[in-house]
Amino acid sequence: MLKGRLKININVMYVIPAALIILFVMIYPLIYTFVLSFYKNDLFGSSMEFIKFEQYKKLFSDPVFILSIKNTFLWTIGCVSFQFLLGFLAAGVLNQEFIKYKMLIRILIMLPWVLPSVIGVNIWKWSYHSDFGIINGFLKFTGIVNDDIQWLTSGSTAMTAAIIVNVWKMFPFVMLMMEAALQSVPRNLKDAAKVDGCNDVSAFFKVTVPYISATSLTVLLLLTIWTFNAFTFIYVLTEGGPVHRTEILPMFIYKSSFRNYDFGKASAAGVVLFSITTIFSIFYFKFFFKEEKV
């Protein structure tokens, strides 16, 4: 009996370093932010006033904040759906047997994900340049458009342009995951389905989907979380511009903290961001675990 207890204790000890780091670096700042959101505090005032929910009231009546929430959803849904679709399609196409040089193709396609974000995003920024960018150059050269498009500085195209960059960066990851998942589908099941008279489409749904659903759901969750928090893309490409059209919530928080020095507002917005991610994940997990049981 004593030995059993000892064993449990050792396991707890193993976990302690990780738990400590997470506690210090994540939990404490989170609590700090939460508390700070109830105060009015900007860098020029040296006193902090406790104003309860005033901060949140101000926040929700700020049109820029509301816009940033809208933008965040637009950004997340746009990015995740196309990242997943493109990656999944790529995995499906690549997975076919007759494809040769699979390794080489895989390596080339992985390039966007491996390239450090800052660099990739900067190259895209240069390519999107209204006067000297290669994208406008190419479009004009092929006659698709006649005039320069201001990709990053026109309200109608900025968000799309940013989404394209994020899709470019992450779809290889999706492809990688989904390829592994697709490969785990046993061949004989697929063949059996074909013999039974299923065509490709229904074979896909009846046989393949159950095997890839776990990975798909995990991938979608990860993509959503990462995209929701994406900072580098927007910071480098547009800094939230033009006029807040691409300002997603993380960018709004950054600007509130480091441009407007309104730390109370920034903290409140941070709490909102964290709440949204948490609620989403809770629902997701509930749904996901239900699936598992079935």
Binding site: M26, F228, F231, Y254, V271, F274
Partner: peptide, 21 residues
């Protein structure tokens, strides 16, 4: 499970407190 939740934490939220610390 909690560890996975910490993946959810937007880094921007903890930048300022960490800076102060």
């Amino acid at each position: 499970v909690g560890i996975l939740f910490s993946q959810l934490l937007p880094s921007i939220v903890i930048v300022l407190p960490l800076y102060m610390v």
